[in-house]
Write a protein that binds this DNA or RNA. Structure first.
Lengths: 148, 148
DNA sequence: GTACTTGCAAAGCCTTTGCTTTTCA
DNA sequence: TGAAAAGCAAAGGCTTTGCAAGTAC
């Protein structure tokens, strides 16, 4: 069964403090990709004492330990999410900023092939699809492959 | 025939100053994805007077105008490149940081399909493959792939 | 001539760090 | 109790901005 963040932490010898538990809670409860400030705010509800630099430090430690994955979308903020293996893409709604996660094996297969073609072995990827909602008309018309 | 950056600028009513010409030169000559500081250094060789904030301002204006494409790789810096249509991926050598551009229609086709599956129309994408060089053994094992 | 641009310096924003105090194991 | 972590404030790195002076059109 899947290990909790807390388990992963102690696994690698990190001390489990009140603050870390709070931060972990905030992350496990998140369904989005929060940045340090959001996590600070969310954690602050459970523990108003918590300090922003603790949040930053903790996130960085988790990221270096491979427990958390860090992203940078266009806004430039460090954003975090639970899965540390970079094995999914993000579909970004350009009109609202909403982010949908997806995974597609076929794309991953092609990616590996491309990397190999260039003499590399794929170890991770970042895929962001920037998209706008389909209009009713487009939806009705059905698929017409295009980029742009 | 393809328009030069300078033409694109005047097209949209931007004044063509010495500094802008210098910055444009630096960008057109670049084969990589320079950040503001690199562009400042390169432009500085042609015009030592040029000011970093002018570089920043100019890049931002160009980006907003859709003349330049901005990226954020893991280092978090704003990086720029000429093509403003986001129609290619970046293969990133994790060991050296080297960036190789590529384009693959099949992946793009899949991307469109995924977007549509979620009710969206793809308007652009960002694809970064993080990879490590193949070892000799792996290369031999693999098929007749050439190293690009 | 006038509106747009630059240079400069200062401020801003996000993030990291030094140091002392606190806490965990 | 010793080492790791937190809190706080200050510094750091990259980027933006206000304003006076300069320049393209």
């Amino acid at each position: 069964m899947k290990r909790t963040l807390e388990q992963l932490c102690t696994d690698i010898g990190l001390r489990m403090t009140r603050q870390r538990r709070t931060i972990i809670q905030a992350i496990e409860n998140a369904s989005d990709h929060p940045d340090a400030w959001s996590i600070y705010l969310r954690a602050g509800k459970a523990d108003p004492q918590i300090c922003l630099s603790t949040v930053y430090r903790t996130l960085r430690i988790f990221q270096n330990a491979g427990i958390l994955a860090g992203h940078r979308f266009k806004d430039g903020l460090h954003r975090f999410e639970r899965d540390s293996d970079e094995r999914h893409g993000h579909l970004i709604d350009r009109t609202t900023g909403k982010i949908i996660e997806f995974r597609d094996r076929e794309i991953e297969r092609l990616q590996s092939a491309i990397a190999e073609h260039h003499g590399y072995r794929l170890v991770g990827y970042r895929l962001e699809l920037i998209a706008t909602p389909l209009t009713l008309k487009e939806t009705a018309k059905g698929r017409e492959d295009r980029v742009g």
